[in-house]
Computed example of a mutant assay.
Amino acid sequence: MLDRTIPADQPLLVAEHLSKSYGRLQACRDISFKLYPGEVLAIVGESGSGKSTLLQMLSAQLAPSTGTVSYRMRDGVLRDLAALGEAERRFLFRTDWGYVHQDPAQGLRMAVSAGANVGERLMAVGWNHYGKIRDTASSWLSRVEIAQDRIDDAPRTYSGGMRQRLQIARNLVTEPRLMFMDEPTGGLDVSVQARLLDLLRGLVTELGLAAVVVTHDLAVARLLSHRVMVMQGGRVIETGLTDQVLDDPHEPYTQLLVASILPA
């Protein structure tokens, strides 16, 4: 279900000369790129490379020291996120954006039911019919491979993989145009990771989502993304189509990453 409100040749998200400093420490340095509708970009690098700081700036959770992030609204106008009011940013997160945290407890309300976690997002965009909300929540649980009879159970009773799938359902139920994912398979067993990646790839393709995925796992980048940016020391040192970068890396650091020599 591709988004038709924006022509495919017009970028959805634009980063221009983004930098972030903490005193003398430069976490990100002069990063620019464009993300187009339906495109999945993976940001890869070892711990401390600046990739998570970049994701927080792109999702308006962290103000850049210099540079801008702009987002194309549904009216087609590209807006500087720094110029948006707090209410406008919250509205984006309820409607156009989703954010999948590495720890699903950060993206879920652990004390309420799974159905309430999904239904809460629908109510935030104006749904008020209890039956329709519950039916839609139940349908989405099935789509992320959670048994519908678990709808009234709290996420704290779920396994780690189920919690992550529930977080995905909560984010996707309002059909956002852009997803941010921070190490979406981190901390899960290998078999659970593989199942989750297959699910994510299918949903992203089916819904025509644009996404920015931060990961240290190149298998995640290869499976999910169209394009890769490799970060080292706060800089983007290599970028290109995923297969090109991972099969024929030019930079020595990228070659080490691909060879799995560097630690995660």
Rank of each mutant, 00 (worst) to 15 (best):
L2C: 08
P7H: 05
Q10P: 09
P11L: 05
P11R: 14
V14S: 13
A15K: 01
E16R: 12
H17S: 15
S19M: 09
K20W: 11
S21W: 05
Y22Q: 06
Y22N: 07
G23E: 15
C28N: 14
I31W: 01
S32D: 06
K34N: 14
A42V: 01
G45P: 02
S47V: 03
G48E: 01
S49E: 00
K51A: 01
T53N: 00
T53W: 00
L55Y: 12
M57Q: 03
M57P: 03
L58K: 12
S59P: 08
S59D: 10
A60Y: 04
A63K: 14
P64D: 10
S65M: 08
S65Y: 12
T66V: 09
T66S: 13
T66R: 12
G67P: 14
V69L: 10
V69D: 11
S70N: 10
R72K: 13
R72D: 04
R74V: 02
L78P: 05
L78W: 05
D80I: 11
A82D: 07
A82H: 14
L84V: 07
E86L: 09
E86N: 05
L92Q: 08
W97D: 08
W97N: 03
G98A: 13
D103C: 04
P104H: 03
P104R: 06
A105H: 07
L108P: 02
R109L: 10
R109K: 08
M110W: 13
A111P: 00
V112M: 11
S113L: 02
A114N: 09
G115E: 07
A116P: 01
V118T: 08
L122Y: 01
M123P: 05
V125M: 05
K132G: 02
I133Q: 02
R134V: 14
R134Q: 11
S138T: 09
S138F: 02
W140M: 14
E145K: 14
Q148I: 09
Q148R: 14
D152G: 00
D152W: 02
P155V: 07
R156H: 13
T157P: 08
T157C: 09
Y158I: 00
G160M: 06
M162Q: 15
I168Q: 04
R170E: 10
V173E: 03
V173A: 11
E175P: 00
E175A: 11
P176H: 01
L178R: 06
F180I: 10
D182S: 13
E183V: 07
P184W: 06
T185F: 13
V190P: 12
V190C: 06
S191H: 06
V192S: 11
Q193H: 00
L197D: 10
D198I: 05
L199W: 13
L200Y: 02
L200F: 01
T205G: 04
E206H: 03
L207T: 13
L207E: 04
L207M: 15
L209A: 09
A210C: 06
A211T: 07
A211L: 04
V212P: 12
T215Q: 10
D217S: 04
L218D: 10
V220P: 14
V220D: 12
V220S: 13
R222A: 13
H226N: 15
V228M: 11
V230I: 15
M231L: 11
R235H: 14
V236I: 15
I237K: 04
L241T: 06
V245Y: 01
D247E: 08
P249G: 06
H250A: 10
E251N: 04
Y253N: 12
